[in-house]
Design a protein around this nucleic acid. Structure first.
Length: 105
DNA sequence: CTATTGACGACAT
DNA sequence: CATGTCGCCAATA
């Protein structure tokens, strides 16, 4: 049976759903957006659970250092989705022009 | 209640 | 740039 999302998870997913196409957000920003600035790892866990892929653009969440980060369905898939949205990534999985496409909550 | 687990971050080497 | 360490946190076992 499906587990009911915790309050924390809901907030995270809710915030993620706000990110517009072509933009990205960092785990850190996200954590701050939900009022738990230091719960960056917990945020990652929340996304890892089982976010509705379509409903929640969790592939738009990247690391603060610019690296793409992880993805439940495989980093490859994440890169593909980002590419589809016109987000460029270099050979070291670094987001190009991160500061320009970063989504501010 | 305690221990473990990570889609992380900052900093050091 | 690549690795490793330590800190932080919510969910789980």
């Amino acid at each position: 049976m499906k587990r009911f999302p915790s309050k924390f998870e809901e907030k995270v997913l809710e915030a993620v759903s706000q990110i517009s196409t072509g933009k990205v957000a960092t785990y850190k920003f996200l954590a701050r957006a939900v009022g738990r600035p230091k719960a960056v790892r917990a945020v990652g866990n929340a996304l890892n659970k089982n976010p509705a892929l379509i409903k929640t653009p969790c592939h738009r969440i990247v690391r603060s250092d610019g690296k793409v980060g992880g993805y439940r369905r495989g980093i490859r898939k994440k890169l593909l989705l980002l590419k589809k949205e016109g987000i460029e990534v270099d050979t070291k999985n670094k987001i190009k022009n991160l500061n320009k496409i970063i989504y501010k909550f």
